[in-house]
Design a protein around this nucleic acid. Structure first.
Length: 380
DNA sequence: ACCATAATGAAGCTATCG
DNA sequence: CGATAGCTTCATTATGGT
């Protein structure tokens, strides 16, 4: 679960064989949960140029576990983490818990950050179990019950005989986002967005190799953007974003990204698309023509039907949401095919001319801009 | 309409044991 | 080496309140 290596590990793979058809640029980066139903990662791998997935646990980068698989065509040489690395232990990440932490709770790190949390009766049952044990030390049976609940629901000690779920602000810190990144939205929306997101430092470590390749910045096609983990990671690395197309269906997530973009003094251009199924080859041609191509196609497709926590619809890669993986695949391959062609810009103009039915003598630039801007969706 | 709450197991992996 | 136990998991949804 350490892929080709993590910071401060002696064993680091720096070279691998990539099929020629998968070599960049453009570079791509795909992510999903590591523990899927059987056969899923084989399907993903075969759809993505048979590249071997790299499995990394974010426990090497933050205080919480997060086992994820990544398939990408990035170089492996000279990876570097964002420094300083964030705290790797619970005590350092959530300072207030230390005072109440019992010695028999041996946890050093948290389990995976999920999209929902425990309910009050769990905290109540734990409190009453501790209060009824009059002695200083609860019974082994009580300890076992409490530890099982604490691990299942990722709870920390916040008072006398009291365990609580993590606050959204604390999760933002652990996941590597700016303080109050998701502020201004309902608690449940914040938890869902954060539980579904990238761990920024883990992503940044893998993307860090792009910094020297693109000193003047990159154009990004960000699919299933969520709360913008990819964008935050690139920003933290120090890679300027010239143009970013964010494809995200959740309006709350879209607002989070736009808010972060506005607050971080971005010089580039941010375009929103509200559904991956609205991406067409025509739009790809337009963006590629306008931006001069994409340098990075990045995204983690929906894990709803793959994730272990799903009791009802864990029906694999062809499930209702997770099947959107195939959208990622065709879009990536379309981008690579379109960028491989010469005179792309001219081809696109000819196509537009034939559709519009009029010539655009000397006004190609205006037409390009007008059509491209038409795809941008304004925030309400 | 929006939001918070609370109840809802199994799959697949790893560690351990004989 | 196989069996067994132990552990973890980017979730869904009916329900009720505001």
């Amino acid at each position: 679960m350490v892929g080709y290596g993590v910071p401060h590990e002696s064993f680091r793979v720096v070279a691998r064989e990539l099929p020629e058809i998968a070599m960049g640029p453009p570079f791509f980066f795909y992510e999903n949960v590591a523990q899927t139903p059987k056969g899923v990662w084989n399907k993903i791998k075969s759809a993505l140029y048979e590249i071997e997935p790299e499995f990394i646990d974010s426990k090497f980068f933050c205080a919480a576990q997060r086992k994820r698989g990544y398939i990408h065509n990035l170089p492996l040489e000279n990876r570097s983490p964002i420094l300083p690395l964030p705290p790797l232990t619970i005590f350092e990440a959530v300072l207030e818990t230390r005072e109440w932490w019992p010695v028999w709770d041996k946890r050093q790190q948290l389990n995976c950050i999920l999209t929902c949390q425990e309910s009050a009766p769990v905290t109540d049952r734990i409190r009453s179990a501790l209060e009824t044990s009059n002695s200083n030390e609860p019974s082994e049976e009580t300890k076992q019950y409490i530890m099982k609940q604490c691990k299942t629901w990722n709870m920390v000690w916040t008072g006398k005989n009291t365990v609580s779920p993590l606050e959204p602000d604390e999760i933002e810190f652990i996941m590597g986002y700016p303080c109050s990144h998701t502020r201004g939205h309902s608690r449940s929306e914040r938890l869902k967005g954060l539980g579904n997101s990238f761990q920024v430092h883990t992503i940044a470590y893998q993307l860090s190799v792009l910094k020297n390749l693109y000193p003047r910045g990159i154009n990004v096609l960000s699919l299933f953007s969520g709360i913008g983990g990819a964008e935050v990671a690139l920003h933290r690395i120090g890679i300027p974003m010239k143009n970013v197309v964010c494809v995200e269906i959740n309006p709350v997530c879209k607002k989070v990204i736009q808010g972060w973009w506005n607050n971080t003094d971005q010089k580039g251009n941010l375009v929103h698309v509200s559904d991956v199924r609205e991406v067409t080859e025509e739009k790809l041609v337009s963006w590629i023509s306008l931006f001069g191509g994409f340098d990075l196609v990045i995204g983690g497709s929906p894990c709803n039907n793959l994730a272990g926590g799903n009791r009802r619809t864990r029906d694999g890669l062809d499930g209702e949401h997770s099947s959107l993986f195939y959208e990622y695949v065709w879009i990536l391959k379309a981008v690579r095919r379109l960028m491989g062609r010469k005179k792309m810009h001219l081809m696109w103009l000819e196509k537009r001319e034939s559709e519009v039915g009029t010539r655009t003598n000397g006004k190609n630039e205006d037409l390009t801009l007008r059509v491209a801007v038409g795809y941008e969706q304004k925030l309400t």
